[in-house]
Design a protein around this nucleic acid. Sequence first.
DNA 1: TTGAAAGCGCTACCAC
DNA 2: GTGGTAGCGCTTTCAA
Lengths: 355, 355
Amino acid sequence: MYTIRDIARLAAVSVATVSGVLNNKPTVKPALVDRVKKAMDALDYHPDQVARSLRVRRTCTVGMVIADVTNPFFTDVIRGVEKEAQSNGYSVILCDSNEDPTLERNYLSMLFSRRVDGVLLVPTSSTSAQESRIHKRFPIVLIDRVPLGFTGDAIMTDNFSAAYDGTRHLIDLGHRQIGIITGHLNLSNGLDRLEGFRKALQEENVALPDKYLQQGDFQLESGYRCGLKLMQLPIPPTAIFSCNNKMTLGLMRALGELHVHCPEAVSILGFDDFEWSAYFTPRLTTIAQPTYEMGRQAMQILLRKLQSTKNDGLSEGSRVTVVKLKAELRVRDSTTSPATRRDMQKENAAIEIIN
Amino acid sequence: MYTIRDIARLAAVSVATVSGVLNNKPTVKPALVDRVKKAMDALDYHPDQVARSLRVRRTCTVGMVIADVTNPFFTDVIRGVEKEAQSNGYSVILCDSNEDPTLERNYLSMLFSRRVDGVLLVPTSSTSAQESRIHKRFPIVLIDRVPLGFTGDAIMTDNFSAAYDGTRHLIDLGHRQIGIITGHLNLSNGLDRLEGFRKALQEENVALPDKYLQQGDFQLESGYRCGLKLMQLPIPPTAIFSCNNKMTLGLMRALGELHVHCPEAVSILGFDDFEWSAYFTPRLTTIAQPTYEMGRQAMQILLRKLQSTKNDGLSEGSRVTVVKLKAELRVRDSTTSPATRRDMQKENAAIEIIN
DNA sequence: TTGAAAGCGCTACCAC
DNA sequence: GTGGTAGCGCTTTCAA
């Protein structure tokens, strides 16, 4: 492992000069630059970033704490973050909190010890992102969701509008009995989607019976459970709005087990699009979040904060950035008008008997 | 930002003592340990890992360079890696090479500069993992695949056996016209799967017409293209083995467009299982790789190397570890006997009856 | 324009 | 047991 002194010796200059060419200081004579670069090549020299970090008090590393690496929603976000980081000379340390507040807290401590310049965080429901102590450590940008009452930098989908638009789509198709499987309601994404849904219903005076509102937790299992409950009601809904991808999957399983056909017997609208959505039968109608873009912009916001923080320490005074990105409704085959479904139901019943 | 000196001053001890309690040196008197810990709590002190790293010449960080964060196969691997790293006090810097050898090379340089202790790498087809210079930098463990002729530490699925078993399943169902959509053949995973497929065919004297072998590149688009080609043949295969998840998706799209039904018209066997496999219609028969386990063990192998390397520098002498994990065939609904679909084909029907 | 030297926060050696 | 201190590889001031 060679050091800057080895290069200096080989190039017959001082360490300061080597450092100068490493940092593209324009004051170094071209002839020396050449000699130094040759020496570096000869020894396959790569300057030690950790020594550099210690000296300049900056690691060019950010931490990213997410809730589930396995969820395609987050992996798209990661890709956006990683791309943007990479092209700005930053590295990202990936941490998977698995929705566990304790793990989240531990990761945040670890990242602090590692002196990351900033953190991107998908907060768990009882997140430490609400403690002022955490914000004293490093700049933080929240992604996807914020705890209720949180004030700080964040980027997310405009969940209210997205849910509103999706629900309007169901209403416009003629549905009046619409069920919803919600997420956690103490996090903005869960709550805002429910509120957008409610708003659309109220505007058209569509009632929302208690039983049509099933509270899930964004996990597959809860989608399954809520799906069973909804479809086993005396009067099941003619359409269901499922508030994230995993729950939609659970819901589909429930439908399968109950032999309830979609969209003939019930229309399904899912939040979150993913690569495979178009390969389900029926092809899923979804609300697509701009995931990659969310990751990219999250990193940009953080970079901007780092820039402005550079000299003044953690500048409490800087303005808070909150970005809400528009989602896109992708209408495919899992939503249809409820009128057509009654006829189909009869057909299916007949077929069922024949079988 | 407090330093070890602040703690020393507050606890009225020397920095050496503080360092002692930080590193659980048993020689420090309990009374002092207490005082020091109190001081740390009071100041929310977290020791600076970058200073520590510089001193001990170890960062407790590993780099992970993968080909596509967006592919569920890799995200499961990541989760295994991250979990194992976390519980051993290691952090992982995530890099997405996007299957680009140049990016891979850049990431490897960057990781070297950051003085990561080791690297987990999913190599691109013309990977720098074959250059001895790279191996001089840090220990590397390859994941999922190795370039042809590579000798070094690696962990992957036993692709040959897995493909062999899967193909046997198709043959046992009565298929004699079996197509394959392969991956890159200059990487072990692509080649081994083809070879396992071939072996099973040869054992039963099943011919493999040239046209039944379509070479893809593990991307969705190639699965689509190859699928179209296969099913538009004068005599299309009665079963297709698709060598990874993305290509299977492309294949499904091709079938949809051609209005070819699965499994009635053609059986599909896909390599790679994923959470949604059971939600397709039909439910996909797949070969499931032990992804999480692969990540976990990859990290374990690397940790073991780090352990043995600790003192002796990069010990060229240490033995090479190559692990091949067993895959699991998950038979669902996309594969079925060809007899049921072609009543007119007497040969197959006869075979079916004999079976 | 170049070089000598101090010092970032920590560990580890050595003296007490 | 505890403390003083050199030094990890780099940047940056200051003097030449």
